[in-house]
Design a protein around this nucleic acid. Structure first.
Lengths: 235, 235
DNA sequence: GTCAAGGCGTTCATCCGACGAAGCGCCGGC
DNA sequence: GCCGGCGCTTCGTCGGATGAACGCCTTGAC
């Protein structure tokens, strides 16, 4: 897969930078040296570095070399950057994503309820049926249905930027999501809250949709924090 | 500035793709042909295409050529992509950004009020002072203070992903922002609403902060829509 | 001693020609 | 008609040559 050399360069350097092995301001070795270290040609190094520059991770200037840019200029929502960052997901990062959902999803639910796209709102109801259908199934199935439900809400919100944020976050979060909503009997509890969201969106009740969604994501956040503290106590 | 050839390749092709001059699925010409058309060498073309691939706009496969990817895989929040997209800002796009703010900022204000970082919350109050100080100034000054205020809220929210979304949006939106909050006597009206946000954040009253911020951004959205319809009536 | 101008080395930017690898389709054998 | 191999196209990579920008250091004037 990663047979392409320049991809390897991107992954290798990108991961190092995001992991802070190469702090901001660090001057990278020259292209020739990098080529030697990574066992690739200069072309591959250059293409890789250009990709990283496109993601805002580095900056190259004639005769001045390539240096790592400050974190603020990084494309934090780039798929690769997210992956590198959440590769080893510490609880701090999980909490941050839980916070992000609390900030994002109620507003999305509100927009969804306000949407004039009836089909998209009906899709939320459909996704809700999926939740009911899988509550007794294996956890994996239920999680998939849960993801579909939340995504349907963002789709109904009718804002592709918002949807994009959700998708990126979900992709990065996906790996650890099972860990998130994994308790077996727990599924039922969240169903009622989800149902309220779906009903409110379908009925176009934006305030209710927002409140209900907040209950869902805050519940998830509290669940995560509790689980985390318990895990911390055990280990 | 854009003397670097590969940058020109990125800009040229990227803009075309985002503008949908090159629809998804389109097979780009051969590297050699592209090099000819853009009057650059094959290396420059390759570096440029690699950058675009890094942004998710295109996909290259050995011997199969380079083709434009579906919009869903684009990095919509990439600085370049946003700029290409909002280069000629149609009212539809402005409405979308206004919607996004409605979805985002209340949640951010809520998180800000919940934050334990007292200094960051005080910074919101400080930014509020800036608003009071510039209300009589030239519009440009006030707009700058307004941007600083909203950014301070996101900073206080303590979620760098959320802050990043805000910054990217603001950067893309910046060009047309003057158009947004440009009415002279209008500044005063929004001040009270902003003050409520600042006060609520400082006092840690998250529900109030959220509600007040919603009033601010919904006011801005309504303002924008009204202005737009009026402009539409004139033209 | 101070300062400025110009030469020089470093490093990225680009072009180019060569070769390798991977699909894809054509074409001949059966 | 089916199948396998061959060759063409196109991307992937290499590395040498050249150009351009920038910093540094020498050199010379005052």
């Amino acid at each position: 897969m990663a047979a392409d050399r320049h991809v390897r360069v991107v992954q290798e350097l990108g991961a190092r930078i995001v992991r802070l092995d190469l702090p901001a301001g660090t001057l990278l070795p020259t292209e020739d040296v990098l080529a030697g270290e990574l066992a690739v040609g200069r072309s591959a190094v250059r293409e890789g570095v250009k990709v990283l520059a496109g993601k805002g991770l580095v900056e190259t200037r004639r005769s001045a070399g390539t240096r790592v840019r400050a974190r603020e200029t990084w494309n934090l929502l780039d798929a690769d950057v997210l992956r590198w960052r959440f590769a080893e997901s510490r609880s701090v990062d999980l909490a941050m994503i839980a916070d992000l959902r609390v900030a994002l999803e109620p507003g999305a639910a509100r927009l969804a309820a306000e949407s004039t796209d009836l089909a998209a709102r009906r899709a939320v109801g459909l996704a809700m049926s999926g939740l009911w259908a899988t509550v007794e199934d294996a956890d994996e199935e239920f999680v998939r249905a849960d993801l579909a439900f939340h995504r349907a809400v963002f789709v109904a919100a009718g804002n592709d930027l918002l949807l994009h944020v959700h998708d990126q976050i979900e992709a990065a979060f996906g790996a650890v999501r099972p860990l998130h909503s994994a308790s077996a009997g727990h599924n039922r509890e969240t169903l009622a809250a989800h149902e309220e969201v779906a009903a409110a969106v379908l009925r176009g009740h934006h305030r209710k949709a927002e409140t209900a969604m907040r209950a869902v994501v805050e519940g998830a956040r509290a669940d995560l924090l509790e689980r985390d503290s318990r895990r911390g106590a055990v280990s």
